[in-house]
Design a protein around this nucleic acid. Structure first.
Length: 288
DNA sequence: AAGAGGCCCTGATAGC
DNA sequence: TGCTATCAGGGCCTCT
């Protein structure tokens, strides 16, 4: 589900709604997410003010008033819903994500504020919450992850030497969060199409020009997607109940069997499993 | 020791 | 209607 752009849209929605608000109560209905929600989680959050909601890669970082942090990862199917006037049990149609109605099942965590609550829903339970008690612990948590594509550190001086002597293909590297963090399965295919590079190309065979294209297109695809409110596959909606629209710009994802979108290209989009994940590419302009 | 593969989980959809 | 198989936007662990 959510890659960096979708997580960023959720972050923006969340920040607008809970910044400077105080947590009144936390209700945990199911601790068994990808990692178990810590036993003191509810107690820890209660009474704290939300300073700001930040993001790194696909992680939402809720900054708390005592200089600690609550991390949230949405996994594959995590969504956040806003319920206004919870005392009257009115569900507004302003969900951060997914359907305008609060789902009936899998509402694992509820965080209550003065006049509303946010509800974390996650059918597959691949998402998780964590507490980082100070900035050092937070930085340590992210220290092994690569830079985001949008950061200046993601440049030719980083990428080109990184690939030297490596045997993996480029698609797998784009999904490898230790190399670059925030790109997922959809945008990886899109980035490689824009770069005219076959997903199975071994990175050691990429020249500087190829690397440059991958760097620039990574930034471009993510920025464009954020600008369009993310990609609304499976009913993604933002805080105003509006859908993102970047899926209309998909050049290859889920377009297998269709004609290549480059007007001069006679190619057909292929779908192929690479390391057990679907990859989409044009058989002509992304020839291996 | 880099890299491939399996696994965590539920739900939607396709095919019989 | 109901079974089974496959697939889904992620990340971590294990095995080689």
């Amino acid at each position: 589900m959510p890659e960096l752009p979708e997580v960023e849209i959720v972050r923006q929605s969340l920040n607008k709604k809970i910044k400077q608000k105080v947590v009144k109560k936390v209700l945990i209905r199911n601790r068994n997410l990808r990692s178990k929600i810590p036993i003191n989680f509810a107690k820890y959050l209660t009474g704290k003010k939300i300073i700001e909601v930040k993001r790194f890669s696909k992680y939402i970082i809720i900054c708390l008033s005592n200089h600690s942090y609550c991390l949230l990862h949405l996994g594959m199917s995590g969504t956040i819903h806003l319920v206004d006037n919870y005392k009257k049990s009115i569900v507004t149609n302003t969900s951060f994500y997914n359907s305008p109605q609060l789902p009936k099942k899998h509402n694992h965590v509820e965080i209550f504020f003065e006049n509303f609550k946010i509800v974390y829903n996650d059918p597959r339970r691949f998402g998780f919450f964590e507490i980082a008690e100070d900035i050092e612990i937070l930085e340590e948590r992210f220290s092994k992850l690569g830079p985001e594509p949008l950061q200046n550190e993601f440049n030719l001086n980083y990428v080109f030497p990184f690939f030297k002597g490596k045997k993996k293909n480029i698609k797998n590297f784009l999904l490898d969060q230790f190399f670059v963090s925030g790109i997922g399965n959809i945008y990886a295919s899109e980035i490689l199409f824009l770069s005219n590079i076959n997903p199975e190309k071994k990175v050691s065979l990429l020249n500087k020009k190829d690397c440059e294209k991958i760097i620039l297109n990574s930034k471009k695809v993510l920025i464009d997607a954020i600008g369009q409110g993310g990609s609304s596959i499976r009913d993604f909606k933002n805080t105003d109940g509006k859908s993102g629209s970047f899926q209309k710009n998909f050049k290859v994802y889920e377009r297998n069997g269709l004609k290549c979108k480059r007007s001069y290209c006679k190619g057909v989009i292929q779908k192929k499993k690479i390391s057990n994940r679907s990859s989409f590419f044009c058989n002509i302009c992304q020839k291996l």
